[in-house]
Nucleic acid binder design. Structure first.
Length: 471
RNA sequence: GCCCCCAUCGUCUAGUGGCCCAGGACGCCGGGUUCUCAACCCGGUAACAGGGGUUCGACUCCCCUUGGGGGUACCA
């Protein structure tokens, strides 16, 4: 009810408060160009102190401002920050923080294009929108004394909102967890690949060869879609940073909320894995942590495993479907019933991507053989011979249920005095091309008798000398 | 450079002067279970950054050092 919420639509509101400050001599016009300010900063640096804008003894008048504007000089408005006493910030997580007089210098509240700066707009907005708590990252702590001084000048009778400055989540490579990490990883990867086709790569990223070159040299960064496309083309996996990255990697929304909540906060007991309602109930501003935290992806995966286990089946199915859409997976063809079944037999999966990976073979026609798996399971030892026997047994079955398939395979293994693995693995590689799949009995049953036999035959033909070797 | 914040196992953290030769979780290591990958079960490893104070007693309070992070824009 306090809108409009677009800054461009709130210009009159901000202007009103700027005029008020100007009239009260708590703000003043400035006509410095960018070059002027650069020079001032350089000067200040030479004197080893920090830069502080020097307030003029007498403030320019409205007429001065109009004249400057007419002459084409930039006109900005600065807030005259109270300099007679320290600025004290009361922070919910950090307590009392004192900034010495002079530490916060007069900052711009209205830009030369007439727009308010963030530090001004947020104060006006917080007041008008009746904000009670300002909860943000530590990077804003140094803005706070200025903002609060502004609040007191503008709304002396109104109580300040509560301020809570949270710790920052840092990356294992040092510094804030930042979007810039993705391009950086890609750039380093490209440098490691001497014979990459740069022309093709630029085309994939939808940028020019020059732009790609500048990117590799570290002079510029293309937009994210381009970065993503190039990474995919090169087979480089980028660290997840944006929330969509985590979605694409198969993490549940519940996992992200839970994990992120525990970075810089804890409930005070040993609880970690919590469903959303419990999390909300347990949350308390007073338990925010002061020190920075590092984003540990291994622990994230563990959290996701737990959340996949505790999410109700129907809900998990919806999450899976969302994931499959994002991943553009062939498994998307599966109906609700099949998806539910896949979730069930993939029990213990760590991410939705795990489920997808294991289920793929059911929804694709061509089997992609993993060379290592074929070599180890089929070519070395009696894999092919056993597979031929299994084929015969499967072909002879009239009831094709998981139970019957299990009984058959176990009996066969016993007869041949082999571990079940010796019998199951060749079959697994034959139907899905690698050694990773749901339990073999379910896998075979879901594939169906006809298709299973077809794939076994194709495998025997592809890798067997005559396809009729015997044990 | 200057200003601000922070400092317990590898990581996230519990701990607010005696309950702590420091608890939990993830990881890691070892073992068990097992048709693959996971999951699961059992066990283990591992920390109060350093130095000064204060106190009968410091992980806990104070100071310094060191280290990490943030800010230093007519960006948000």
């Amino acid at each position: 009810p306090n809108g409009p919420y677009l800054q461009s639509q709130r210009r009159e509101i901000y202007d009103k408060y700027v005029r008020q400050l100007l009239a009260e001599k708590r703000a003043y016009y400035c006509f410095d160009t960018a070059e002027d300010l650069d020079a001032l900063r350089e000067e200040a640096e030479a004197e080893t102190g920090g830069f502080a804008y020097r307030r003029p003894d007498t403030f320019p008048t409205q007429a001065d401002a109009e004249k400057a504007r007419a002459e084409g000089r930039p006109v900005t408005v600065r807030f005259a920050v109270p300099q007679d006493e320290p600025l004290v910030v009361q922070d919910v997580v950090r307590g009392v923080i004192t900034f010495a007089p002079g530490e916060i210098s007069d900052f711009i509240i209205q830009k030369s294009d007439g727009f308010p700066t963030y530090n001004f707009a947020c104060v006006v907005d917080d007041y008008l929108m009746k904000i009670t708590h300002v909860i943000r990252g530590q990077e804003h702590l140094n803005n706070t004394p200025g903002q609060q001084a502004l609040w007191r000048a503008l709304f002396p009778d109104a109580e300040l909102p509560k301020y809570a400055h949270m710790s920052v989540t840092v990356s294992d490579t040092g510094g804030k967890l930042s979007k810039r990490e993705r391009p950086k990883v890609l750039r380093d990867a490209i440098k490691q690949m001497p014979d990459v086709d740069l022309e093709k790569l630029a085309a994939v990223g939808d940028i020019t060869a020059d732009e790609l070159n500048a990117f590799i040299k570290g002079q510029s960064v293309p937009d994210m879609p381009g970065i993503d496309a190039m990474a995919e083309y090169l087979g480089v996996s980028l660290p997840e940073i944006n929330i969509v990255d985590f979605r694409k990697s198969g993490y549940l929304p519940e996992t992200m909320v839970n994990f992120l909540a525990l970075l810089g906060w804890n409930p005070g007991d040993n609880r970690e894995i919590m469903p959303l309602p419990e999390l909300i109930d347990a949350f308390d501003l007073a338990r925010l942590t002061k020190s920075n935290s590092l984003f540990d992806r291994k622990k994230l995966v563990a959290f996701n495993t737990e959340h996949i286990k505790m999410t109700p089946p129907e809900r998990l199915r919806e999450h899976l479907r969302d994931y499959l859409k994002v991943a553009d997976s062939p498994v998307l063809k599966a109906d609700d019933e099949l998806l539910a079944r896949l979730i069930k037999i993939c029990e213990g999966a760590r991410t939705l991507a795990d489920i997808e990976r294991k289920s793929r073979f059911l929804l694709t026609d061509a089997v992609e053989y993993d060379a290592k798996a074929v070599d180890k399971v089929l070519l070395k030892g009696d894999g092919l011979a056993i597979l031929a026997i299994v084929r015969g047994k499967l072909a002879a079955m009239d009831q094709f249920s998981e139970e019957k398939i299990e009984t058959m395979l176990r009996t066969l293994a016993e007869e041949k005095q082999l571990g079940l693995g010796k019998v199951a693995q060749p079959l697994r590689v034959a139907i899905c091309g690698n050694t990773i799949s749901p339990p073999i009995f379910d896998s075979v049953q879901l594939l169906g008798k006809e298709e299973t036999l077809r794939r076994i035959d194709a495998t025997l033909k592809e890798f067997g000398r005559d396809g009729k070797q015997h044990l």
